[in-house]
Amino acid sequence: MTADLILTPNMDRPDDIYADLLAAHEGLSKDDSDALNARLILILMNHIGQRSVLAQALAAARAPTGS
């Protein structure tokens, strides 16, 4: 049983969540922002856990307009 990547709206308060993301980067240098992003990606990858879902996410990120 492999789960599908969710690509339909799934965030409970999208505007707030987006603002949280930007706020986390506020005042950081480019290097520090890059490092934060990398840590964030790794943390979220661990939370998702399943390689098949992550593979779909990587594919979607590489080709944002869809295949």
């Binding site: 890059d34 490092a35 990398a38 840590r39 990606i41 790794l42 943390i43 661990n46």
Partner: peptide, 19 residues
């Protein structure tokens, strides 16, 4: 950047250590 992020996280979070 990712390598250093793994090392930074590994100090505090067990999940990063297998990486």
């Amino acid at each position: 950047i990712f390598r250093d992020a793994v090392l930074d996280l590994s100090e505090h979070h067990a999940f990063a250590r297998p990486l």
